[in-house]
Design a protein around this nucleic acid. Structure first.
Length: 726
DNA sequence: CGCAGCACCTTTTTT
DNA sequence: AGGTGCTGCG
């Protein structure tokens, strides 16, 4: 067998990892060191050189995107579809196992997946029914609690309150939630993993079957595994299988949702003779960017130890820009991007990264003003939209009448006269009889427990769902979707919603029909009927953003969503104390180190140019705040940095600020000409309201640059512009 | 039962 | 500032 196509493109360390004979490996793969390449080449090596059957391979990732990419690259490398191989996310794989063994897992065959929004609603309903003080028991907190416990593998009956009343109540909520989910055949994301873990743990024959099958297990982003995921891997691997874990402790940024870096150490203890291979050669960034990133991350303790290096050029210095406010920051960034585009570079090789989603707005406004196409990642995804979830809830009821979450969602959407009162009776009946809401409704109808009017309304709903369900088996998926949207009254309902929002919803509903039409059931979902497959797909892969995806766009996203990506030019924005590191992280050393890793992740996204900016003043939640530069900026050695202050040669004295009392709007103490200051809000007869962001000259010669809210940025001669202060 | 106005809160995100 | 969720009213 000619193996040159597998080994030739690799460096020594990569080659060592790919061709290692050891049973268990830990690959510490630094940013840009070719991690995915190593994973895919390892698989090709096992199949084409060692003769492993693809059937025996399990490759696990965290996101659908990563799974899709890996699958694609494996097929490309091996020149054949990855038949029989399991490549998927933890949740996707768990779902598959539960489907295959629903009986052993004590689930109904038609169990439905709850996304976090569904879960939130169920929990909120429980809190209501328990009549708990909502200020003390926030649904979010209860949801967080339940998920955290499940992630640790703990069921409600394993928990002890130790006399703590609050904890006692949370456990009680957890317990009731478990019961309701079980009754309705509803499985949330954490439950997928926990249930799978229990399945393997409790049913030796099933465990045996998969242990024998998966002789090779590969895990991506190992540093992001939480307790239950790690435990699942350990269980599946047993003593015989071989593990290939790839991760980077310096890029662990999900500790706040249960990821345990310690699993890397634990792996060394739990698995036999783990051989560690370090990938430290970086193929992405310049020496400057890498040097700065290395210096930054060296401030963290407890690292596994790793220093990235590169053969590449020094590259440009990192620009650190001190903006005077968030608008100035945005303008600077956009100015740099414009320059970049003028040099003939593609827009989508530039990315604006920030700590929190709220920061995107200022950049969006600036980009719109300059008519630069952009794309914001994150936010609501297709299958998470209200109208889509409504339509899906009808379809889910068709598939499974006992799905209480869906029942609650649409029983009175659109409004059909089933009110709070009626629902309360339904819930009470359901609780008493330990039945689903649907079954309770049937009981109520049979025993005539409702006033005539409500009974008619409820009856109409039951008939509606039954009618919709009739013949749905033979209907192609998209026709079912279409019929659902029509006869549920959803289309009518949203048509009434005025303005652009309503028409957007109608468009989305049409899009759902399109999605149903183009939905292709994958081979591994062959055990499901098309409707169930489609519904699982909707929950498990909430769907990438709406269109314009492939257009050449400036990329905007949070630092978290930037992990795994790379761009020629990266703007790291809002790098200020309190924002980044985030206020809620500064007090705890562990959290602070995670913020630092986040900064490291952000910096190492850049291939050629890195810009870091911070504003001296930032409008946040409606009020102005003075901000100091982030400690992370000072952790970057000066020799890598080129400091830039706002515009031109006239550096105004606000750098050595004479801080005014922080009460009135903006108080930069530089007067340009009578009454006009940098940062001053002004109105112009034609351009409307704006802010002065820059100026040239003094007195009657002064020209000021004003960022107008709607008219964009303009240079005006102060003497003629007739600017009124606000 | 449905709507409109008010109070509240605000990190990061995948599945 | 802006969105969401709840309360109170029609």
């Amino acid at each position: 067998m000619d193996v040159s196509h597998i080994l030739d493109p690799l460096n020594d360390a990569q080659r060592e990892a790919v061709s290692a004979q050891d049973q268990n490996l830990l690959i510490i793969a630094g940013a840009g060191s070719g991690k995915t390449r190593v994973l895919t080449h390892r698989i090709a090596w096992m199949v084409q050189v060692e003769g492993t059957s693809p059937y025996g391979i399990l490759a696990v990732t965290f996101t659908n995107k990563a799974a899709a990419e890996m699958r694609g690259r494996i097929e490309h490398l091996m020149g054949a579809p990855a038949g029989g191989m399991w490549v998927g996310t933890f949740h996707g794989i768990a779902h598959r196992l539960l489907r295959a063994h629903w009986q052993e897992a004590n689930l109904p065959k038609t169990f439905q997946i709850l996304d976090s929004d569904d879960q939130y609603r169920v929990i909120k309903r429980i809190l209501k029914s328990l009549d708990l003080d909502e200020s003390q028991y926030a649904p979010r907190e209860a949801q967080w609690f339940i998920n955290a416990k499940k992630d640790e593998g703990l069921r409600a009956d394993k928990l002890h309150d130790n006399g703590d009343h609050h904890l006692h109540e949370l456990i009680r909520i957890y317990k009731i939630y478990e019961e309701q989910c079980q009754r309705g055949g509803m499985v949330d994301f954490a439950e997928l993993l926990l249930r799978t873990h229990e399945l393997l743990n409790n049913v030796p024959s099933v465990l045996e079957q998969y242990r024998r099958r998966f002789s090779k297990i590969l895990v991506d982003e190992f540093q992001d595994t939480n307790t239950i995921q790690y435990s699942l891997l350990k269980l599946l691997a047993g003593n015989e299988s071989s593990m290939f874990a790839v991760g980077d402790d310096d890029q662990s940024i999900y500790g706040w949702r249960g990821a345990k870096i310690e699993n890397i150490h634990q792996y060394n203890r739990d698995f036999a003779n783990v051989r560690t291979v370090r990938l430290e050669q970086n193929y992405r960034s310049t020496k400057t960017i890498l040097g700065a990133s290395n210096a930054l991350i060296s401030n963290n303790s407890d690292r596994l130890g790793k220093e990235l290096w590169t053969d590449g050029s020094e590259g440009d210095l990192i620009t650190v820009y001190t903006a005077f406010n968030e608008r100035d920051e945005a303008n600077f960034v956009i100015q740099q991007i414009t320059k970049w585009m003028d040099e003939g570079n593609p827009r989508n090789e530039s990315a604006i990264l920030y700590r929190s989603n709220a920061q995107s707005r200022v950049f969006e406004e600036a980009l719109i003003r300059q008519r630069i196409p952009y794309r914001v990642y994150g936010g609501l995804r297709f299958f998470e939209r209200m109208e889509i979830k409504d339509a899906l809830a009808y379809m889910r009821l068709i598939a499974n009448r006992d799905d209480d979450a869906s029942f609650e969602r649409v029983v009175n959407t659109p409004t059909r006269g089933i009110g709070q009162r009626t629902l309360e009776i339904l819930r009470a009946t359901a609780n008493e009889n330990k039945k689903s809401l649907w079954q309770a409704a049937v009981i109520i109808m049979e025993n005539k427990l409702l006033p005539a009017r409500a009974a008619t309304a409820l009856h109409a709903f039951l008939v509606l769902i039954n009618d919709m369900s009739k013949g749905s088996d033979n209907l192609p998926l998209h026709e079912l979707a279409e019929q659902t949207i029509e006869s549920s009254g959803l289309k009518e309902h949203f048509k009434k919603e005025k303005g652009e929002k309503g028409s957007a919803r109608i468009e989305n509903l049409d899009e759902l029909i399109t999605a149903a039409r183009s939905f292709i059931q994958s081979e591994e979902e062959a055990d499901l009927d098309p409707l169930s497959a489609f519904l699982s797909h909707a929950s498990l892969e909430a769907g990438e953003q709406q269109g314009s995806e492939w257009e050449d766009c400036v990329q905007l996203m949070t630092l978290h969503s930037a992990k795994g990506l790379e761009f020629d030019t990266v703007f790291l924005c809002g790098v200020e104390e309190g924002l980044f590191p985030h206020q809620r992280s500064v007090d705890e050393p562990g959290r602070l180190e995670e913020e630092r890793r986040l900064c490291y992740v952000g910096m190492t996204r850049a291939k050629k140019h890195l810009f870091i900016s911070h504003a001296e003043m930032r409008r946040l939640h409606g009020s102005d705040n003075y901000c100091t530069p982030s400690r992370f900026i000072s952790e970057i050695p000066k020799e890598y940095v080129n400091e830039v202050r706002p515009m031109t040669s006239m550096t105004p004295s606000y750098n050595h600020k004479t801080k005014a009392k922080p009460s009135s709007a903006i108080k930069i103490e530089v007067e340009i000409t009578d009454g006009l200051k940098l940062g001053q809000r002004v109105t112009h007869a034609k351009f409307g309201e704006g802010v002065i962001v820059n100026y040239e000259g003094h007195g009657s010669h002064a020209r000021v640059q004003v960022n107008f809210n709607h008219a964009g940025s303009k240079w005006l001669v102060a003497a003629y512009a007739n600017l009124a202060t606000v």
